[in-house]
Design a protein around this nucleic acid. Sequence first.
DNA 1: CCCCATGTTCGACA
DNA 2: GTGTCGAACATGGG
Length: 266
Amino acid sequence: MPELAEVEYFRKQWSPGIGQKVTRVLTHPKARIFRDASAGEIERCLEGQSFLESFAHGKKMCFRFSSKVWLGLHLGMAGKLQTATPEIVPDRHDHLAILLPSVALVFSDYRMFGKVQIHQGNSAPFWWNNLPPQPQEAEFTRQRFREILKRRSRRPLKALLLEQADFPGIGNWMADEILWRARVHPTARPQDLSNHYRNRIFDSLKEVCDDAFRVIAPDWGDPPDSWLFNHRWKRSGQCPRSGKALDWITVGGRTTCYSPAIQKLP
DNA sequence: CCCCATGTTCGACA
DNA sequence: GTGTCGAACATGGG
């Protein structure tokens, strides 16, 4: 489920716990989300520590606790962060519950593609170090975008936009939305595009990030029908710009929705 | 029973 | 090295 702005939405869901001390940690020891850190280690590191602050980067999140404890979370395909009362009895999909005096911080993930990492130390762990600029930031410049396209000149644009090392946070619906707004065919390669279309993709990338943060991050608002988003899920969906039929193809192993009427191969 | 799903990773192969 | 492809992970919904 979660891409850039959804991840930011979920990160904030735990903020009511900031400043409180962990009284207890409930885990399901066999949950796949703990494959990089044992449930016991997570409990041992977190119990008794204060929740200080949190960050999101792309699809990853980092929650910092006292005594230099770093908790890394990735929501995978179906993960969610919620709060509950401290008396929570976790159901079968609540794999991690961090109990604080007035609130419980809960990570549920019925498909278990998510990931939990734990670290204790003065400096950031490897998984929260040397993070690349995010597309919504000013540091992600047109110059940087041009360099990525040059370096990955033969990669289909749809597959390239999904590369987390270059476009942290962009997922399937955002990549389709970006190319649809730029009127670029999802299988087009950077080397085939004119500078005009390369610039259009950069502008769309920034615009889709801004729109997603504005509409989704605050309270999970519904995107307007002027986006591709609301039409891409329906069979026989129609392109809101041309009124023509949408089509679905597989690019980079992912289902890709596009509008053949306005997204032509160069 | 079938197919699909807003994600990542790994191995095989051209 | 680059790029592609399929499978795997696990569960639920249509």
